[in-house]
Each structure stands twice: as structure tokens, then as C-alpha cells.
Design a protein around this nucleic acid. Sequence first.
DNA 1: ACATAATCGAGACGGTACGTCCCGTCTTGTT
DNA 2: AACAAGACGGGACGTACCGTCTCGATTATGT
Lengths: 202, 202, 202, 202
Amino acid sequence: MATTEQTQTSRPAGRPRSARAERAIIEATLDLIGETTGLGELSIEAIAARAGVGKTTIYRWWPTKEDLLVDALATLKAPLPPLRGRSLREDLIACVEVFRREERDARTRCVLNIAMNQAERHPRLADRVRQAAIEPRRAVLTALLRRGVATGELRADLNVPVALATLIGTVVWYMRCAEDADVSGDLVEEIVDQLLAGLAPR
Amino acid sequence: MATTEQTQTSRPAGRPRSARAERAIIEATLDLIGETTGLGELSIEAIAARAGVGKTTIYRWWPTKEDLLVDALATLKAPLPPLRGRSLREDLIACVEVFRREERDARTRCVLNIAMNQAERHPRLADRVRQAAIEPRRAVLTALLRRGVATGELRADLNVPVALATLIGTVVWYMRCAEDADVSGDLVEEIVDQLLAGLAPR
Amino acid sequence: MATTEQTQTSRPAGRPRSARAERAIIEATLDLIGETTGLGELSIEAIAARAGVGKTTIYRWWPTKEDLLVDALATLKAPLPPLRGRSLREDLIACVEVFRREERDARTRCVLNIAMNQAERHPRLADRVRQAAIEPRRAVLTALLRRGVATGELRADLNVPVALATLIGTVVWYMRCAEDADVSGDLVEEIVDQLLAGLAPR
Amino acid sequence: MATTEQTQTSRPAGRPRSARAERAIIEATLDLIGETTGLGELSIEAIAARAGVGKTTIYRWWPTKEDLLVDALATLKAPLPPLRGRSLREDLIACVEVFRREERDARTRCVLNIAMNQAERHPRLADRVRQAAIEPRRAVLTALLRRGVATGELRADLNVPVALATLIGTVVWYMRCAEDADVSGDLVEEIVDQLLAGLAPR
DNA sequence: ACATAATCGAGACGGTACGTCCCGTCTTGTT
DNA sequence: AACAAGACGGGACGTACCGTCTCGATTATGT
């Protein structure tokens, strides 16, 4: 058959993209976004310098800063919630724990920053981040809460989205705006318990 | 008593500071921070242009961008929570309502952005914003919750800071990250009721 | 007879102009123009500071920089050529000597700078300077040369303006552009003698 | 021998310097210095604007304004004095004619301005200008005068530098300070003739 | 092996905003 | 009034990055 054709993936000829450069760029982006306050302060020049790469190489593959960020943040995808235990309470605590731990790392914290603050300025970016980072956790928690309703652990008329927002919102607010901005594992349990108290049937 | 004029301390000589310029600068800053993604993208040049003012006049009074922002955001201080009604539920709803409404305006929303996201980058600014914008509301809500405990409307072992974070955090998270990022007044009631259900004695 | 009224010249009421300030301003202007490269670098701010005077006081009396310079340079008027001796040669040497000495002082040198270089840019200023500073010397020298023609010391068909330009031009060029930019009194004599040799009858 | 290509030393990597930009900058500088009164009024911003160039590009190659001026004025180097004729008189006239013509152009006139007036303020610049623009002419004229001495057309004890200053100084002074500041070709001849009359042997 | 081609780094390009300095104007209270 | 003090709107300074553009050098593929 033919000439340049390969069985499946015919490479287009020419020097192939450097995996090393790509990794270095993503890594440098994550480092710098963690030290930065917004897209405006994240400088391509600085990324290139830290990655030991020409600016051209960045612009060749990511036309806009958003594109680069989307790819970079995607790699943080998280270990995702963990395996589950046997009771609703236990599982909820485990889920929230993951959230709590991620909030302590500057890199992953900025994912939430973007999701929460950049919706108007960078809707495409915020959407992608929400899709990649928030949605999976929401799905897991939603399933969990629904299961609780099914098993009778939670009351039947539960507003699941509100319950979900309560769980996450409380932790996030506490960690970011409380006087003692630190949240211990114990506090997570307390939060979950309080929620459960309010949502129990009767 | 007398007038506001002072008897002794004469003004320091020279043309006095222009109130008009100061107002215009603060106003321009608020306009632009509302259209911006972070301190880095807020350009003094743009503020000066929009305010119809020389850059010098800005730098004369606010050495750093932070200083300017602190003063600008201070003017948003908010009408603050409203007068109170007669039941705990009613008052909580009123308080949260204020929060909800402020979250709809880009200008005031960015106050929270700073308080929640800039703590590491601009600690001085974040602290001042928290002090000026968050603390008063926290105080009011805390008093409200304590009153609820006193009157027996809330259970005695209530963890007040957690309850407070739940109230605010739920609303903020809902408005910023929920699928349908809009929150109606009804939803506010639902959130408060759910909280009360969990916190009621017994 | 009234109070503040004077016999003849009724002063216009209000605080009288400060002679001290005027002197200080003129003096400061001369100091600074001597350290400067052109009107553009002569700063009113600097003059006011050095004179210990408010900028207003300068602008009140001299609408433009040119006006101030004209007044300032006028005070340099020079002792003008000296008394004269008994021979043409002696008098010419005396005249040129004055020129030579003035060229050594930065303040008076700048008078010539303006006369020679600023004609296009500041015609009004250059004209006034020429009128005040150059013209008198030209008149004296011209009279001198004419007398020489009359007494038969110089040839009858002498082109007086050219002879004059030769005398002054040679000294100026020598002092400003020669390798050893210094001109001794002996050299002045040599220049005059050479001119006389070329202009002698026959 | 071979081509102008060099075998070993490869270019230093990176985009090469733009000849177009360099030319435009030099040209703009000359235009503007011709409309200006001194270094202080020559604004880099204006040069960049007129040249259609970023300020960076100027600062990259010329750290100071002086450096830029030196390079710019060097390009005016002049067609230099012309080929020579057969008599001393004819050659002197030709030389002075060049001088006269250059004094009519604002661009080249400012070369002399700098050489004559900026020695104290910008010694480096004045020196370079003298070296590049004055010295060659001085050399040619000096040779011419020495030849005249050798051929007996001029007297043996001639002070060459003084004679040279007389030639140039007379023309310059005449053109810059005489009442009718214009100098015709005829006048040049008259000046040369007068000089020769004074310098002829006996 | 060798032309072809797409990559890479380096770095110059035309720009924008920075924060500073000084301009010339203005607006005070004091003399 | 005239004065000093000094704030005002404006504009150029020299620096740091922006995102684009040219380079020579490198590294693969397809004859």
C-alpha cells in the first residue's frame, strides 16, 4: 500500500515534538500559577525561562494562556475521591477529606480560585476547569447523597444540590476566610455530623 | 463643640488635596477592578486615564496598588446587614440575603475574591479586606446565632463558627460553582431552614 | 494727608514686588544657564529652588523662559570694551582681549552660544542677545577699523564687516575648536598682527 | 580571499538585528536634532515614534543619548572636501565652500553647534564629533597651507593653526552672527584673498 | 546518504505599562 | 497684591514583559 502511510498513526515527517519540553512547560506553568494572582500575572516569558524553553515553543502549541492553563491544570486531576467505606457518614468524611487536603496545596488551590472567580473574565477556562476538576467530585458526592436517601439514612425530600453545596462550601469558606484558617480532620467530622443531623429523616 | 473647623492646627500650606480627584480615582479603581482578574491586570495608567487624572496624583497618595485597593474597597463597606426582625429565622434570612445580593455585583464580588484568594500573595490587602468587609458580617451573624442559643432556638452545644461557615459558605459556593449559578430568595430560605433543622435542640 | 499715599507715584496697593526675590531669580538663572546646554534643559523648577522662591513668582513676572533669559543676560552687559590707547594695533588688541576673557566664563560664553546657535529656534531671544551683547562691540570695532582706514593705517578698499568677522571669528573658533583650546594674550597679538599685515595698504 | 562569508564564526543565534530599524532610527535622530536646541530636548520617545520603532530597540543598541548622537552624526561625515585644483587659492576656496554649504543645512549645522558649545556638558560627545567631523577638514586645510609654505606661495614663518582658524572662523562667524547672515560665494573668495594678502611672503 | 520538513533555542522586533521626575498651571493661607 | 508652598494634569524617562518574528541548529522521515 501506498508510500508514507503507516498502519495506524502516520507521523507527519519532520522533527517530532519534544516530550521533554512539553513536560517542562506544564511543570513550570503549575509552579508559577501557584505563585500568582491571576492569568494576568502569569507570564509566558517566565514560564519559558523556568522551563528552559524558547517562547516560540509555548506559543506553537498553546495559542492562548487559557489553553496552556487548561492543559496544565488537567494534569492535577487529583487522585479523585478514594475507595468507599461502608457507612454514609464514613464515605462523606472521606470525600471531604480529599477536598480539604487539596485546599492546602497552592497548585490545586488555584484550580478552585479559577473555578470560583474567573467565570466572567475567562468563561471558557472556568468551564473547562469546572468540568475537569469540580464535576467528578460533585458526581461522586451526589451519588453518595442519593444512596443515603435510598437507604433511608437521609430524609426523602432532601435537596441534593443544596446539601452538596453545604458540605463543600462550609469547608472552603472555613479554610479561606475563618479566623483560624486551618481545618483539622476533626472539624471535617463535625461538619459532616452537623449536616447529617439536619438531614436525617423526621 | 462648635463647627468642624479647628481653632489651632492650620492646614499645612500649599494647594489642598483635590477631593474631586480622589473621588474620581476611587471610582475608576472600582470600575476597573470589577473588569479585571487580579491586581496584576489592574493598571494604574488605566485608572488615571479613566479618572481624568495624572498618574502622579495617584502615586502621591497611594504608594502601592494595594493601598489604593484597600481604600477603594473600603468605600464599598456595604449598607451592612439590615435592622432585625423578630424571629431568628427571619433575621438569618435577612442577613444571608444581603450577602446574596452583594455577590451579584462585580464590584463587591471582587472583595470576596480578594479575601478568599489573595491571602498568600497579598496578605496585607487580604487582611484589610477581611477586617473591613467580612468581619462586621461575621460579628452580626455570630451575635444572632448566640442569641439563638440563649433563647433555646438552637441547641446548646452549637459550634458557632462552623454554623456560620455553613450559612455563608453554602451560599457562596452555590452562587459561584453550582450548575445553575443563580440563587433565588427561596433558596436562601431553604438553606437557612435546613441549617436550623440540623441545629435545633434535640 | 492720608496714610499710605505717596506724593507722586501712587503705588498700586498690595504687597510690593520683592527686590530680593528678583535678584535671586536672575542670579539663579545665570548660574543654571551656565551649567546647561540649551533652553530646554534650563528648568524653572530648578531656578525657583535655587533662588528659594515659589515658581509662581517667576511665572508672574516672566511669562516665558525667553523673557527671563533676556533680562538675566542683560545684566551681564559686560564692562564693554575698555578705554582706548593711542595706536590702532593697541586698541584692536585691547578689544579682542575683552572678547577672549569673556569666552573663558561659562556664564558669558552662553551668551554667544545663544547668539550663534539659537537663531532659528528662538529668533526673538537670539535677536535681543545680539542687540544687547554683540552689537555694541561690533560698533566699537567698526569705528576702530574705519578710523584706521581714515588715518591710512588700513587700505582704502577694506571690507570692514569681513575684517571684523575675521578678528572675532578667529578668536572664537580658536577658543572653541582648536586642538589646544586655550588662547594666550600672545596669540591675540599674533592674530591682530596677521590681520593688519593683510590689510595694510599696498 | 574568497567571499565575505566567514568560514568559522557563525552568527550569535537569535533573530539578527534589523538594518531597516537602524536606518530609520538614525534618520529620525538627525531629523529631530535638526529641529532641536540641545540634547535635553531630543526625546527618545519622539525618535522612536518617528522611526516607527519601539523604544526598546533604541535602548538595546545605544545605552545613552550621546551614543546615539555620535552614531547619527557620524553618518553626516560629509562628502568631505573635494578633489583639488591647481593653485593654492583655488583649493582653499573649494574647501571653504564646502564648509559654507554645510552651514546652510540645519542637520550639519548642529554638528558644529555641538562641537563648539557642548564641550563642557558632553565632553565625550563633543570630542567624538570633533574627531569625526572637524578633524578631517582641519587635516586637509593644514596640508594645503603647508604646501603653500613649501611652494613659496605663503610666507615661511606662517602660524598654520592661526591661519586655519582665520579661514574657518571668519566664515562661521559671518554666517552665524553678521547682520546679513548670508554668505555668497563671492564673499568666500574675498575672505580667502584677504587671508592670502596677509600671508604672502614679504 | 541525503534532501525535506517540522521542531527547538535564542533573541530582536513593535508595543504597553510601569513608577519616577519635572514641566507649567492652579489654589491655598500668610505677609 | 505678592509671596511660599505644594497639589494638579501632563509627558518623557529608562525598564520589564508582552506576543510575534526571524534566525541557525537539530532530529526525524522517505526516498
